[in-house]
Amino acid sequence: MQLSRDDLKEAYRRMRTIRAFEERVKIAFESGQIPGFVHLYVGQEAAAVGVCLHLSDADAIGSTHRGHGHCIAKGCDIAGMMLEIFGRQGGLCGGKGGSMHIADLAKGMLGANAIVGGNPPLVIGAALTAKTKRTGAVAVSFLGDGASNQGTTFEAMNMAVVLKLPVVFVIENNGYGEGTGVSYAVGAHDIAARAAAFGMPAHKVDGTDLFAVHEAAGDAVRAAREGRGPSTLELHCPRFHGHFLGDPQAYRSAEELQTVRQHDPLSLFRIKVTESRLLDSHQLDAIDAEIEAMIDRAAAAAASAPFPSPSDLIKDVYVSY
């Protein structure tokens, strides 16, 4: 599927929003404004955006502890996300979820999930709903290389093949599960091949290349929508930062830390679209400035918003209270 100029602008807008959001979250966290812990998606923007460009609000995604990028790519409200991460009233989950549990079901965002490998069974459930009710929707499970080793992932992959569910497993291989490298933790050294062994198409793609991700995801989403069953994409996309903010990354060499930013999905995108004269740098700069202002507003609003009221503690445990 070809990307129009408007599509390209939208792709860039979403990627830039993720980058700017995460950089602002980093500043806010380091200045003590954000409680708990956060996991930044910087470096992986092309993965979430390249996939979600194919999805509408009717399609579902499941996300991970590193979920801000998926939320933004899927259309979650930026101000509501920032409020949520700050733990404030008006957050997408009323301040009761936080960074690792942002959800917006109206947008088809079934939730960030802080259990590694927690979402694949849930996502195949959304796919079962689509299949049973014949909605034509698809469901996408975003997971990491770490989750690729979980039994829940294996079970969900096999179940999806057996029931021919409209689902795409998008494995973002960023090189590390916490502080342990993929070359150690993935016994087969090949996540896509392992997924293929379940009986579905599985491809390795450069996850820093928006165009490559978009093309591969287009095929996988189309197959799911047309009733041809599940697929897996293994996207290689190193994270720029540590596992969590504050991670000293003693497990990464100085050389790796210096070179990881050479594969910056935003820079790569900018070079491609400007060299091919599809967009010019002024247009991209204008998007940058617009997004910067939006993030400024969101962060300022979040920092001054009230915390949840004490009565929220015992609300929404059940439908009745």
Partner: peptide
């Protein structure tokens, strides 16, 4: 895990 999780995700979506 897939049985129970699939039921949860299906319940969340209709």
């Amino acid at each position: 895990s897939a049985i129970i999780g699939m039921a949860v995700g299906a319940a969340n979506t209709g």
